[in-house]
Amino acid sequence: MSRPDLVTVTPARSAPPPQSRRTGRIPVALLLPAALGLVFLVLPLAGLLIRTPWSTLPQRLTEPGVLTALRLSVQAATLATLLCLVLGVPLAWLLARIDFPGRRLVRALVTVPLVLPPVVGGVALLLVFGRRGILGGWLDSAFGFTLPFTTAGVVLAEAFVAMPFLVIAVEGALRGADVRYEEAAATLGAGRWTTFTHVTLPLVAPGIAAGAVLCWARALGEFGATITFAGNFPGRTQTMPLAVYLALETDLEAAIVLSLVLLTVSVAILASLRDRWLGSS
């Protein structure tokens, strides 16, 4: 009776595992839109690559305007991210840890720049920090300090638009962190500030890093608020997205090259950070 047993056992062993058997049954109603969605996201990027003037690329990349805009973009986005970290992490801590009246309202206010059209944000910034604005007028008369149409204005506009990304990411990380570690720190004699710097911050560092990356990427691509609040002065306020937009009207190939540079920088940064902090698939 051993031979029939062998015959029945062998095919069961060599049969494909259930996982691969299931792939044959993906409904077309899901597969088709999924494939279309992927094509929709990838095709424009492919178009960019196809139309890139590869032969003249090296010479176009070294044009002074390109490097100036790139440097300004990276600098402004980095400064904006630092500003967001300094202001946004404490704000996130407040929202996550302190139960104060009106907390829900504050949280809603924080997310407003997320849904606000960036141009509207730029106008709002002008009304406050403009030369005739509520704070801007005072800054101008008291210190001779103006924000609009300066590099500092670019940083401000980018920080305004990008900060909600950081606050939301860090608040989520803080809420996910185990508060009992903070209680343990208190039983060892640590006050709130020491607990924050020595326990809480290290625990949520991955969340802060993820928030900072999102924040930086958003700041790098910022267009609407920047052009409204800071204008479009080459070398001073003209960031890459602005340069792309301007080039589009005069020189299509230049616009393509600028876009390619921006794409490369963003993808490179995201890819290098993804495995470390954003969690890979």
Binding site: R180, E183, A184, A186, T187, G189, A205
Partner: peptide, 20 residues
């Protein structure tokens, strides 16, 4: 008196050693 000023030591059930 807040926790951090009390002369106590606590061993928690799952220890809560600081992972970093």
């Amino acid at each position: 008196t807040p926790t951090e000023q009390r002369p106590i030591g606590v061993v928690f059930q799952d220890y809560l050693l600081f992972p970093h």
